[in-house]
Design a binder for these strands. Structure first.
Lengths: 231, 231
DNA sequence: CCCTCCTTAGTGGTATACCGTTAAATCTGG
DNA sequence: CCAGATTTAACGGTATACCACTAAGGAGGG
């Protein structure tokens, strides 16, 4: 996530963080002029930042109406897992097939961080370490298209982990151990299956928690129509 | 592909078409002011259109330098097939699992168009019918996230089919018949496997043709540096 | 003749300002 | 008091204009 200092990227990074941390709630209206004023940028870079977020799926832009934070329904969670299962599985397969001594070493460093964080029982650190482990596998897959497809999913996944709580860290960590071993051994089919199972294992807890929010099914069209009046 | 008449969407649609039709070649520089003048829009909507194309992968934006049409190397073709295999397979699985009488009927209409077009041996019509068949499956999968992930791939796939030529239409059509039957029967695993094989079958011919262009490995950084001087 | 410095214009990045649309607020008549 | 017409201004869409950066092309000295 480089930030070449441009105001657009600054606005993008700021908004993305606020959405992921739920400082901006799903369904919340994003008014260009207000945000531009708050972030001390003009509307042009802000608009471009919104488009980037929309391309990533974190924001919905209703043409001619405005932008709002994407709603995140139980169905969205289901869809997210459907896609993550196959893409993470593909990444693991490719990573295993293209594994080299140097790449295995890099992945192992991530795994060690997972172990350490899990031992510490530091939830923030665990989440970061797990995310880094998965990101490393994507990177090892050496498929730029896959990488670009995964980044929106990563954003939503991070979001999901903030909204819900993660499942048992020790269990996750041991699954990472298994996945690492298969990738290191160059076992493409095994790594793919292991990754699939690893993602699938997170589905039930997440959907269960997701069903408890059950936002009143925010309708983008409807929300976009509302306007504020002078305070 | 709706176009709410906004200038941004017009610029987007125009540029996308030109890229897909190779009127703009991979690696070609996209100069904001020139394109804006040519399309009779100002730079703001044009910039936003470029960002949309970049999010879709058809354009590369070098920060602070400029935009150019994405190169399309044999490695990119390989990556495209890696991802299409698993995503089209997932779409077929979901479509089969969620098949209803009404959805099967819709898909069958697409299939009939494939048959008719293949009988006519009209390559343009065949390409359109095949694309529509695949798009319908994505739609039946009823997973908005998957749909959004597929649209960039569709653009690149269409592009690929313009650059290369397709493989035997009759064979493709018969594979569609098989895939349709499995989805209609609600056989999720079978449909997934069939879709995977269908995509995989197109890999070899495409990569073979792709290796023949072998552009001089356009480097985005390098191309972006070049500037024109008064004509 | 070649190398170095300097001028200049092409280019992306951003701000400001205006326009059209339309929802909210206000006004009017019943 | 309420329903409909009318006014107001919020908001997204777009154009114009300015700035900073930098590479092309030329000037001047070795």
């Amino acid at each position: 996530m480089s930030e070449p200092g441009s105001l657009r990227d600054l606005a993008y990074a700021t908004l993305r963080q606020r959405i992921v941390e739920v400082a901006l709630k799903p369904g919340e209206r994003l008014v260009e002029r207000d945000l531009a004023a708050e972030l001390n940028v003009s509307r042009i870079p802000l608009r471009e930042a919104l488009r980037m977020l929309a391309a990533e799926g974190l924001v919905v832009i209703v043409p001619g109406k405005g932008a709002l934070v994407s709603p995140f329904t139980p169905a969205d969670v289901r869809d997210l897992f459907d896609v993550r299962e196959v893409l993470e599985s593909l990444a693991a397969r490719l990573a295993a097939a293209r594994a080299s001594a140097e790449s295995v070493e890099r992945l192992e460093k991530r795994l060690e961080e997972c172990r350490a964080a899990t031992a510490d029982a530091d939830v923030t650190r665990i989440a970061a370490a797990n995310a880094a482990f998965h990101a490393e596998i994507i990177d090892l897959a050496d498929n730029p298209l896959l990488t670009s497809l995964m980044s929106p999913l990563a954003a939503r996944t991070e979001w999901l982990f903030r909204l819900t709580s993660s499942r048992d860290p020790a269990e996750q960590c041991s699954e990472h151990e298994e996945l690492f071993a298969l990738i290191a051994a160059g076992d493409a089919d095994g790594a793919a299956a292991s990754a699939y199972a690893h993602i699938a294992a997170g589905r039930a807890p997440s959907t269960a928690l997701a069903s408890t929010w059950s936002e009143p099914t925010v309708d983008p069209e409807a929300v976009a129509k509302r306007r504020r009046r002078r305070t």
